[in-house]
Design a protein around this nucleic acid. Structure first.
Length: 485
DNA sequence: ATGTTC
């Protein structure tokens, strides 16, 4: 795949399309990648990153992270920091799966203790954490109570016994974006979401048992601060979002924005998938308040799933979850828009930072990260493919260039359809088991779509973020068991 | 990603 001729190399990890690349660009578009990743980059990324650079109010650069690929409007991996006073909010810059995110949980068990019980463990998790399209959770809620979940996020879970107080401290924004307003959410969204708390979903959503091998620790001191203290320690990583609830909110507001964008606000974009409305408009503010409901629902979803995981481990190992050391490392979103203060040309300014398949990555000493991580920087959780592994990173001071944002995962290299043509789910499961990874799935086709060969090299992505100064590698985590949505 | 084309 050829890169555009106009693409300029700024440094070993920064590539830029100037404003002359496309009519209407207000700022240049920058892609973070090493030479190999940029040459393999999905061509759609260049066009989409340039389109994003046309959004009213965008500051400095439109960014795409090294795991970037073609998405709806924005690339997956896209970042846009927009002036809230003069600029827009765009659902395509957040994604359909609002607050899709990652949670990493510790245990004090080691691989040697878990291996003999692995099948039992994964089977129990598969049974107790509902997965797959249309799955329903065990938490039974009225529509009214669900609206409270949407406004309170993880705080609702604590109040109802699904979690530990420190879980909130170890979740981005304490597990609740302030200002969520359920009256801005359609009945249809509530209808789709109210029975989905505590469910994994489908696609690339998963729950994984992983091992931190000594040879895969890059930064031992930070690993210890993050709770990884023993050789071959077992951890649990999972990836999911706001299910049908967030999807419906995104769908509702995309339609509403399209109806007013040009006629009422005089905004035209290259791509109707970049539907947007002025942030300070009634439409923009309504979407912002509704989006926060989906953000909070997703935090609550992951919180209830954690509760279930602790129950499963406790039942199987006949010890209390706290005795098993099942505290969180962190929970971090990768599909949101948030008002944050950043330095722009030496001035502190409030910006609306859209991150779509991109992770907030605050550096050491910054406000907004847990006290215990003040010196190390924020934990960043990057999910790789279920065959290859994942990364725990830490935020770095160099993140200032990307509004403290880093990658979120491997990024697909081929379509789901293409992957499914190359391998059957049943065969993949057998192959993986031979290699020591026991996987259960709600869908054979869905499993095939997630084959390792359909994803970029996670090692290259993590390394590129480190070379770019956005985040540093702390530990590479190897999967041994996987529940696939 | 998604009651996978209300």
């Amino acid at each position: 795949m050829a890169v555009p001729a106009a693409l300029k190399k700024i440094s070993a990890t920064i590539w830029e399309l100037p404003v002359s690349y496309k009519a209407g660009m207000l700022v240049p578009a920058r892609i973070i990648a090493d030479e190999r990743l940029i040459n393999a980059m999905d061509a759609g990324v260049f066009e989409q990153a340039a389109n994003v650079a046309c959004l009213p109010g965008i500051q400095k650069y439109s960014y795409c992270m090294p795991d970037g690929h073609w998405g709806y409007g924005f690339p997956i991996g896209g970042v846009a920091a927009i002036d809230p006073a003069t600029g827009v909010i765009s659902p395509g810059g957040i994604g359909f799966d609002i607050n899709c995110g990652m949670r990493l949980v510790l245990t004090n068990l080691v691989e040697e203790e878990v291996r003999p019980r692995l099948r039992e463990l994964v089977d129990a998790l598969f049974q107790r954490v509902p997965a797959g399209v249309g799955s329903h959770g065990f938490v039974k809620l009225s529509h009214d109570e669900f609206c409270r979940v949407a406004e309170m996020g993880s705080r609702w879970c604590l109040k109802h016994g699904y979690g530990w107080p420190e879980d909130l401290e170890l979740t981005e924004e304490g597990g609740c974006f302030a200002g969520a307003d359920a009256t801005k959410v359609s009945q249809r969204a509530i209808e789709r979401g109210y029975n989905q708390i505590g469910t994994l979903g489908s696609g690339n959503h998963y729950l994984e048992i992983q091992v931190a091998r000594p040879e895969n620790i890059f930064d031992g001191e930070t690993a210890r601060t993050f709770g990884i203290t023993r050789p071959n320690q077992v951890v649990i990583m999972f990836h999911c979002g706001s299910r049908g609830f967030g999807h419906q909110i995104a769908t509702d507001y995309l339609q509403r924005f399209l109806a007013v964008m040009t006629s009422k606000y005089g905004i035209t974009m290259h791509d109707r998938e970049l539907a947007c409305a002025p942030f300070r408009s009634p439409e923009g503010q309504d979407y912002f308040a509704a989006m926060k409901c989906a953000v909070n629902m997703a935090f609550a979803n992951r919180q209830v799933i954690l509760h279930r995981i602790r129950e499963v481990f406790s039942d199987l190992f006949h010890r209390d979850p706290d005795d098993l050391g099942m505290g969180m490392v962190y929970d971090v979103a990768h599909n949101t828009a948030k008002l944050e203060t950043h330095l722009v040309d030496g001035k502190r300014r409030q910006l609306l930072v859209h991150r779509k398949g991109a992770t907030r990555s605050f550096g050491p000493g910054q406000e907004g990260i847990p006290e215990r991580y003040r010196e190390t920087g924020q934990p960043v959780i990057i999910g790789g493919s279920m065959e290859t592994g994942s990364y725990l990173l830490a935020g770095e001071p160099g993140g200032t260039d990307t509004f403290f944002t880093t990658a979120h995962g491997s990024g697909r290299t081929m379509s789901r359809h293409q992957a499914k043509r190359m391998v059957k789910g049943q065969k993949l499961q057998r192959d993986m088991e031979e290699r020591g990874i026991y996987v259960r799935t709600a869908s054979w086709g869905g499993l095939a779509e997630e084959a390792g060969f359909a994803y970029k090299d996670i090692d290259a992505v993590a390394e590129a973020t480190e070379l770019a100064g956005l985040s540093r590698r702390v530990a590479r985590l190897r999967p041994i068991g996987n529940v696939k949505g």
